[in-house]
């Protein structure tokens, strides 16, 4: 059984209120997403800015309220929960944020930040044991236990991200949603955090939903990868095959746009135009205005997200037909 099973998830925001404050339009940030994460697995989630990947991550830990759909975690649907029931269910589900500067309270010591989750869930009552636990967590993320009494401003970006990881680990979660955890870090520090996440996964059997826009990092860390565009998942499959042999035209364009050291003047699929606004998504397939292989049908009909090979799903009319012919 999967640890996390998301089905038909939608997050819509009201926009452009009229004079009475009633919305005249809806931003469809997440528009019908289904995915699952198994225990101990990393699912990578990639896409350009504004595609809804962060909103999806936040909705899964219920920092956003879903408009429709279900989020089954450990067999329990989080979408309908609130109050103490939600808090209990959420213990197994933690989050690491992108901005290591903005996600720690500057007036709280590192120990207070890590200990908050322990107290909320009443995991350790005794003071000495609690302190020992915080020290152990700091050690696990490669920091000195003595830093528990220091404040966030005393640390570098990489160290703060380690503190954020220790805080997430404090309640012994099974799944951590990582929202761009390394994109604000310098290259040499990024590698340290990536390796730390991998070794924690091995030692604790953690599952990750790893959200990033850097495809190379996602491929490196993930077992499977989902590609998102305008609130929908376009392609999902094992990371090596998706990155090595992409099926969806958007995945192909995205991969070919990634510049790589040593590779010069490759054949590139340069997409025309910008990502359309989720306020007025195009009809039919949301990618059709920029798609190099779009046909008339793409304009009117939303492609179904379906399995085209074992473990590989794609939302594209054209891929389906090519697959059927071969």
């Amino acid at each position: 059984m999967s640890l996390l099973l998301v089905e038909g998830l939608k997050v819509h925001y009201p926009a452009r209120p009229d004079w009475r404050g009633r919305p005249r339009a809806w931003v469809r940030a997440v528009d019908g997403v289904g995915l699952e994460v198994a225990a101990g697995e990393t699912l990578g989630l990639v896409g350009e800015s504004g595609c809804g990947k962060s909103t999806l991550g936040r909705a899964i830990v219920r920092l956003e309220t879903p408009t429709a759909g279900s989020i089954r975690f450990n067999g329990e649907d989080l979408a309908g929960l609130d109050g103490p029931a939600l808090r209990r269910a959420r213990r197994g589900l933690q989050m690491i944020f992108q901005d290591p500067y903005g996600s720690l309270d500057p007036r709280w010591t590192v120990g207070q930040a890590i200990g908050e989750g322990i107290d909320i869930h009443g995991l350790i009552q005794e003071h000495g044991a609690r302190r020992e636990r915080i020290g152990g967590l700091l050690q696990d993320v490669g920091l000195d236990p003595a830093v528990a009494d220091r404040y966030p401003h005393e640390f570098s970006g990489g160290q703060r991200q380690r503190i954020g990881i220790a805080r997430a680990l404090a309640v012994e979660p099974k799944l951590i949603v990582c929202d761009e955890p390394v994109s604000a870090l310098d290259v040499s520090v990024q590698a340290q955090v990536v390796n730390l996440l991998q070794s924690l996964q091995r030692s604790r059997g953690l599952a990750y939903l790893f959200i990033a826009h850097d495809l190379a990092v996602v491929e490196h860390l993930s077992h499977r990868v989902a590609v998102m565009y305008l609130g929908r998942i376009m392609e999902l499959g094992p990371s090596r095959t998706v990155c090595g042999d992409p099926l969806h035209p958007y995945t192909r364009a995205l991969l070919s746009a990634v510049p790589e050291p040593g590779v010069r003047r490759r054949e590139r699929v340069i997409l025309q135009g910008d990502v359309p606004s989720p306020l007025q998504p195009p009809s039919g397939c949301p990618f059709h205005p920029r798609c190099p292989v779009a046909v008339a049908r793409c304009r009117s009909e939303v492609p179904e997200f379906r399995e085209v090979a074992p473990g590989r799903s794609v939302a594209c009319h054209e891929v389906k037909e090519r697959f059927g012919a071969s």
């Binding site: 290259v187 040499s188 990024q190 590698a191 190379a216 990092v217 790589e260 050291p261």
Partner: peptide, 16 residues
């Protein structure tokens, strides 16, 4: 320390 597409390394080189 930079991961690349199609990279098969288990872990990245780390600069301490």
């Amino acid at each position: 320390s930079v991961p690349r597409l199609g990279d098969v390394r288990e872990s990245l080189v780390v600069i301490p």
